[in-house]
């Protein structure tokens, strides 16, 4: 070889798969030999650089995100069962009794509307394909908090049904559920927009 080695050729020699001609050249060429030595030294120096350590413990965020995912699976199962229950509830409201007053009638109508809205939001949430998406820590925490609150409201609705709570109280619970579901869908939609950017 009549010319000096390129860095690419020296890197191949360093990695043990250089051409015989290049190897022969380096053996008899002081500048190329020095360059190869420098490559070895630089590589050794790279390996000797101190490792960085994470400034903060991220396990709590990871654990919370995992817990959120598990809750979501539970909620998904619960929600579809809940849809049937909700539909049945509307039926119950319709046949349980003739409303005693205009206020009762109005509350019963509102519950029916809120149940319908809640179902639409559930369907929207299902259409977002949330499982395969990675969310950042803040979003994961926000989603987990909302899901916890929805689960708590759902428990409240179940208890309210069991004790035949007045329609106005039922309407309050369903109203809260719709607000929380709306926030949950909104949070997921924002995340979709971010990931899709």
């Amino acid at each position: 070889m009549l010319r000096h080695c390129t860095i690419a050729e020296l890197l191949k020699l360093r990695d043990g798969d250089g051409a015989a001609a290049a190897r022969l050249h380096v053996e008899g060429c002081e500048p190329c030999r020095s360059e190869l030595d420098r490559l070895y030294q630089r590589t050794a120096a790279l390996k000797a650089l101190p490792a960085h350590r994470a400034p903060r413990d991220r396990w709590p965020v990871v654990r919370e995100a995992l817990a959120g995912e598990r809750r979501r699976v539970r909620i998904a199962r619960y929600s579809w069962a809940g849809l049937a229950a909700a539909a049945a509830l509307v039926g119950v409201i319709g046949v349980r009794s003739i409303p005693h007053s205009a206020a009762d009638d109005q509350a019963a109508q509102e519950v029916a509307t809120l149940v319908d809205e809640s179902q639409q939001l559930e369907a929207m949430l299902h259409s977002l394909d949330r499982e395969g998406r990675v969310v950042n820590g803040a979003t994961a925490a926000a989603i987990a908090a909302l899901e916890d609150r929805i689960a708590a409201v759902d428990q409240g609705i179940s208890r309210a049904q069991a004790v035949s709570m007045p329609e106005e109280s039922m309407a309050d619970l369903w109203r809260e559920r719709v607000v929380l579901m709306d926030q949950l869908v909104h949070t997921h939609v924002r995340q979709v927009a971010y990931v899709g950017y």
């Binding site: 994470a54 991220r58 990871v62 995100a65 995992l66 950042n136 820590g137």
Partner: peptide, 11 residues
């Protein structure tokens, strides 16, 4: 890098 740490362990 912290975000990568978190995403890696979620995965």
């Amino acid at each position: 890098a912290e975000e990568v740490l978190q995403e890696t362990f979620l995965e």
